[in-house]
C-alpha cells in the first residue's frame, strides 16, 4: 500500500512529507523500545510508535524506514519533525492506540517484514 493509504487506514494527520505519500510500503514494525527495533534487521518501512523523542526518528533513519506513525494523538516537536524532513521520512499522527493502528494496518495487508 502507499503511505497515503497508511494515513487513511489509521485516520492519521500528515505532519510532514506530504510530497512523499505515493511511496509504496509492504511492511511495518510497532514498538516503544528502540533497541527492539534495532535488534531485528528486517526491511520494515513504517514505524508505529508512541514515543516522540528524537531517537525515534534516528532509529527509523538508521533502519532506512520511510515513515513514522505516532499513535495516541502524540505529536513530536519541531526539532524532531525537522530531522525527519531532512531525511525524507514521512511523519503522521493518529489518535488510534498502538494496538488499533497495528491491527488495522495488518488486516489491510501490511506485514512484519523479512
Amino acid at each position: 500500500m502507499t503511505l497515503r493509504e497508511v494515513a487513511n487506514i489509521t485516520q492519521a494527520q500528515i505532519i510532514s512529507g506530504q510530497e512523499l505519500l505515493d511511496t509504496e510500503v509492504i511492511s511495518a514494525c510497532g514498538s516503544d523500545m528502540m533497541s527492539d527495533v534495532l535488534a531485528h534487521v528486517k526491511n520494515q518501512s513504517v514505524l508505529v510508535t508512541g514515543l516522540i523523542n528524537p531517537q525515534v526518528v534516528r532509529t527509523a533513519l538508521m533502519m532506512d524506514m520511510k515513515c513514522i506513525c505516532f499513535v495516541r494523538g502524540k505529536i513530536p516537536d519541531e526539532k524532531v519533525i525537522e530531522i525527519a524532513s531532512e531525511n525524507n521520512i514521512v511523519i503522521m499522527a493518529t489518535k488510534n492506540t498502538m494496538f488499533e493502528a497495528c491491527g488495522k494496518l495488518f488486516s489491510r495487508g501490511l506485514r512484519g517484514g523479512d
Partner: peptide, 16 residues
C-alpha cells in the same frame, strides 16, 4: 521511557 535501556545494546553490537 525514552525507548532505550532494554539491555540489547551490547548483544546487538556483538551480533552485527
Amino acid at each position: 521511557e525514552l525507548g532505550f535501556g532494554a539491555g540489547m545494546g551490547l548483544p546487538n553490537m556483538k551480533k552485527y
